[in-house]
Computed example of a mutant assay.
Amino acid sequence: MPSRPPVHRAPRSATRQQQRRSTDARRYRENGELRRWYMRAAWRKRVRPDHLSSEPLCRICRVVFDRVELATDVHHTEPPTSWEKFLAGPFASLCADHHREITAAISHGRRPFHLMRNADGQPVAPLHDALWRELGAPTP
């Protein structure tokens, strides 16, 4: 019975899984303190619930798409540099999808283009540059 030919890899090249683990470990080392701040009781039991109760709707869904969606995540619009700034904000309430997209765009230094169109596919970016700056997203 024939067998699959071996997959050629350059000597000492890492597999995708090894590369992913290495990247995840590096990100954890770089953001370890920040990740620990999210686990503290002051954030989980006081600041986050207070902000979600004061602004319960996703800001992007409300402003850009004119729809009502409950916010599940609190987005830091300015990267916190200390524990005091982490708790003080400024914050924006976002649904999970928009928080994930905004965070990915910011971490990769790009603008979240697919969020720039309304439900009809019409571009809405020129009208909402201030909102993207407010959320901490890069502008062109």
Rank of each mutant, 00 (worst) to 15 (best):
M116Q: 14
L115T: 11
R62D: 05
F65M: 14
G121K: 10
H114P: 07
D73R: 06
R27E: 07
H75C: 08
I106T: 13
I60R: 05
H108F: 09
G32D: 00
P80N: 03
N31E: 08
E30Y: 06
E55Y: 07
D24S: 15
W132A: 09
H128R: 04
S107I: 10
L94R: 00
R4V: 13
L52P: 01
L131H: 02
S53H: 06
N31V: 12
W132R: 01
L57V: 11
A14I: 02
Q122R: 13
E101C: 06
E30L: 15
R117Y: 15
R59W: 02
I102E: 01
D129V: 15
P126H: 09
D24Y: 12
T81M: 09
P80Q: 06
P126K: 08
D97I: 09
T72N: 02
R4P: 02
M116S: 15
P140A: 15
A88N: 01
V63E: 04
R59N: 05
P5Y: 03
A92R: 04
E33N: 05
Y28W: 03
A25K: 01
Y38N: 02
T15S: 11
R26G: 05
Q19I: 14
D66S: 12
T15H: 03
L70C: 04
V64W: 00
E69W: 04
R9D: 08
R133S: 13
D73A: 13
K45T: 11
S53T: 13
R35V: 14
A119F: 01
R44G: 03
L115C: 11
R110T: 15
F86R: 02
W132F: 13
L94W: 05
D97W: 01
D129W: 12
V74A: 11
L135T: 00
H99S: 07
L127F: 06
P138T: 07
P140H: 10
P49R: 10
R40C: 07
A14T: 00
W37H: 11
H108W: 00
E134I: 02
E101Q: 08
D24R: 14
D50W: 01
W83S: 09
C95N: 08
H76Y: 05
V64E: 03
T139L: 15
I102R: 02
S22N: 07
